[in-house]
């Protein structure tokens, strides 16, 4: 849950980017880093392997500023997507307030998306959480590539809850801020 520190008047929210390996989670967070006013963000930290795959997580703190006396911080994390890094993925989900699922639109990655969203449910269940209780948005990434699954098919397979979803080309910053905004607002509304 979001941590409200009444003493220092701070609200901290944890938002996690989830999805299959090489789907573009880190690209999303790097775009946010490059576009957000430097005064409103901290350092982008990446714990990755020599091959540039995320090993543990990427982390970017973003400050919303002060709202009615509370300073509001969003902590953005990515998880490693590769199947064999599930232990790290589970750890990052601890205390998650909001989720952005970055799906890879390419035909050959269709099954990986489904495996990943099922894996998300399994991992949340270990913390006794249900995915539907946590604000979620979906980005269908890599829409600029030629061999992609149709939006309808992706929606049918990955979005039975009918949560906010959008098309994305994270490398160009398309569809990056929309899901983040959507989830951040839902996380704050849950504090009400």
């Amino acid at each position: 849950m979001a941590l409200i520190n009444y003493s220092s008047k701070e609200i901290n929210c944890k938002i996690v980017y989830y999805g299959p390996g090489l789907g573009g989670k880190t690209t999303n967070i790097k775009h946010i880093y490059s576009k957000v006013n430097p005064e409103n963000r901290g350092k982008l930290m990446s714990l990755d392997t020599e091959l540039d795959r995320t090993l543990f997580f990427d982390f970017l703190p973003v400050d919303l500023g002060t709202v009615k006396g509370f300073s509001v911080h969003f902590h953005l994390y990515t998880v490693p997507g590769q199947v064999y890094y599930n232990a790290s993925r589970k750890l990052i989900l601890k205390g998650v307030d909001g989720l952005i699922f970055v799906a890879d639109s390419q035909i050959e990655r269709f099954e990986d998306n489904i495996d990943s969203i099922e894996n998300l449910d399994d991992n949340l269940a270990e913390y006794h959480k249900k995915a539907e209780e946590i604000p979620l948005a979906i980005q269908y990434n890599k829409r600029d590539l030629p061999n992609i699954v149709s939006l309808n098919e992706l929606e049918d397979a990955l979005n039975p809850r009918g949560v906010f979803s959008c098309e994305g080309v994270a490398t160009e910053g398309i569809g990056v801020f929309e899901p983040l905004k959507e989830v951040s607002k839902k996380v704050l509304r849950k504090l009400r």
């Binding site: 946010i32 957000v36 006013n37 409103n40 973003v62 919303l64 500023g65 709202v67 009615k68 509370f70 509001v72 801020f177 983040l180 905004k181 951040s184 607002k185 704050l188 509304r189 009400r192």
Partner: peptide
């Protein structure tokens, strides 16, 4: 609070 925070979010992102 929510309404102010949402306005801030819109301008930040």
């Amino acid at each position: 609070f929510i309404s102010e925070a949402e306005t801030e979010l819109d301008s930040l992102f």
